[in-house]
């Protein structure tokens, strides 16, 4: 192992972890407020990547500038999906039904992407994707740092909305006790739509960075959603802070094992960490013992 490799692995882990954290934060927010598992979060990320790809290839719009279009577009898509499908879910078997419904959404979006783009790998290109910084005797593609900063800024915006605004008070009240929040006039339906839309909007950012860091196909969403789910479970369902820590733990553990030992075992070791944490704390690192106290 050459000098600086481990530092590089940690740095890479933190930078990539930030992007995963953002995608997982959207997922955990949706879980917290709507009491559902959004399996489609993975395909939304991939859709975000294809959206950036199309804007760049068809209109010559750069990746970062394109976000001005893709973030609102994903927000509207999220609002539509919540209104069209999620709102129809009853209380009975809600979590299982939500998995089925969002899985159906996944298949539809995946099918549309396959029809339109085919199954070949695509990747996002830009000068900052190919250029690198020189750190710890290694090369770090600029997009890693830019992507991380963007994800960090997005997470900060999410935190600001959650902790400083009126919507944030409503969202957190609905996460804490949906029924009681409704009784004191919080419009839980509206809050649910906004939360789902925001949770999906962040995938525009996640998808752009994901697509710039690695090639993708319409099928890439399955690996992604399984990772996002483990992050959210590790951090504690419904905890945004937990999603951040969970994402960092996942990526840093995998990166360190990869360079210090072998990439073959990296994912397995991460899952071992996950299992140990869940044995000790079944509610995850920052989860509430009872996710929804009624």
């Amino acid at each position: 192992m050459s000098a600086g490799t481990l530092e590089m692995a940690i740095l890479d882990g933190i930078l990539t972890g930030g992007v995963y954290a953002l995608m997982a934060a959207g997922l955990t927010l949706i879980f917290g407020v709507l009491d559902m598992i959004n399996i489609a979060q993975g395909i939304f990320v991939i859709l975000g990547a294809y959206a950036s790809y199309s804007l760049e290839h068809s209109f010559g719009i750069g990746l970062f500038e394109g976000l001005i279009i893709t973030i609102p577009a994903m927000f509207l898509l999220g609002a539509f999906i919540e209104w069209a499908f999620i709102r129809r879910l009853g209380e009975y078997n809600r979590v299982s039904m939500s998995i089925l419904v969002t899985y159906a959404v996944t298949i539809v979006i995946e099918g549309v992407l396959l029809l339109h783009f085919g199954s070949n790998y695509r990747s996002l290109t830009a000068s900052y994707v190919t250029q690198s910084f020189h750190v710890f005797g290694n090369y770090l593609p600029k997009i890693y740092l830019y992507g991380f900063l963007l994800a960090l800024a997005s997470v900060l915006v999410l935190y600001f909305i959650l902790y400083k605004t009126r919507l944030g008070v409503s969202v957190r009240a609905a996460m804490d006790n949906r029924f009681a929040a409704q009784l004191v006039g919080v419009e839980v339906k509206r809050v649910s739509t906004l939360t789902f839309a925001i949770g999906v909007a962040v995938t525009a950012v996640g998808g752009m960075v994901f697509g710039a860091v690695q090639p993708f196909t319409p099928n890439s969403s399955y690996d992604l959603i399984s990772r996002l789910l483990t992050i959210v479970v590790l951090g504690g369902l419904g905890s945004v802070g937990g999603a951040l820590v969970g994402a960092l733990v996942m990526v840093v553990v995998e990166d360190i094992i990869s360079v210090a030992w072998t990439p073959t075992w990296a994912t397995l070791i991460y899952f071992a960490v996950l299992v140990i944490v869940l044995l000790l704390k079944p509610q995850g690192l920052f989860g509430q013992r009872e996710v929804r106290a009624q």
Partner: peptide, 30 residues
């Protein structure tokens, strides 16, 4: 029914949400 994960003061603001407009709630302070 209280909102255990929020502060006492934040609990006080929950019932004031109802008159707020759609997207204004995203930018208006709590």
């Amino acid at each position: 029914k209280i909102f255990a994960r929020m502060t006492v003061m934040e609990n006080m603001f929950i019932a004031t949400q109802r008159k707020e407009g759609w997207l204004r709630s995203v930018i208006r302070p709590a």
